[in-house]
Amino acid sequence: MSASLFQLLRRDLGMLLFGGRRGGTMLPLLFFLAVAMLFPFAVGPDPRLLARTGGGVIWVAALLAAILPLDRLIEPDIELGFFDQWALRGIAEEWIVTVRVLAHWLSFGPPLMLAAIVSAALLGLDGQTLKLVELGLLAGTPGLAALGVMVAAVTAGLRGGAALAGLLVIPLAVPLLVFGAGSLATGGESGIALTAAVSLVLLAMTPFAAGAAVRAARG
């Protein structure tokens, strides 16, 4: 079983990581940096304003960047018949989805944390704020990855599924955003702990919710 899961992870990473074959894998990262670059143009160069709002902007940009690859996460594999073949080999959808959450997170979480350092420089954030943003992203991006896979599975096969997935993720990501970006305002670690708690709940739910959704989509 674990050997099969390793093979699945290898394939998922080959698809989702940089230079991946499902196209547009650098896109979330560039999108994230573009938002961070455009923000000072939009609100003006006042350093105090930028420093105060910059952390929140990084969080919103991270959320939007995580939404970009949703339509490539689950649906192509259902359409190509991969999930059918895995089911015949006795690999549970729950495991496949768990592996996919891990691969999705690896493809955008760590790169986003690196890009946040660049963004922090662009927005003029101080070291303490950057540390809180990075810790918050570390706690929050696994939850975003799980949420993304869950919503991608639920909307697989629907007409306009890609747009619907984005619409569904945003309200469900509110708790992550409230606690993650909120930790910047309070300057405390309790916000990050709550972000991590929301992430863990999402990570625990996703295999079952997304697995059931994939089985239902197969029909």
Binding site: R21, R22, G81, F82, D84
Partner: peptide, 9 residues
């Protein structure tokens, strides 16, 4: 079946 389950790319 009609779907080969092979990565097109």
């Amino acid at each position: 079946d009609e779907r080969p389950a092979l990565d097109p790319q």
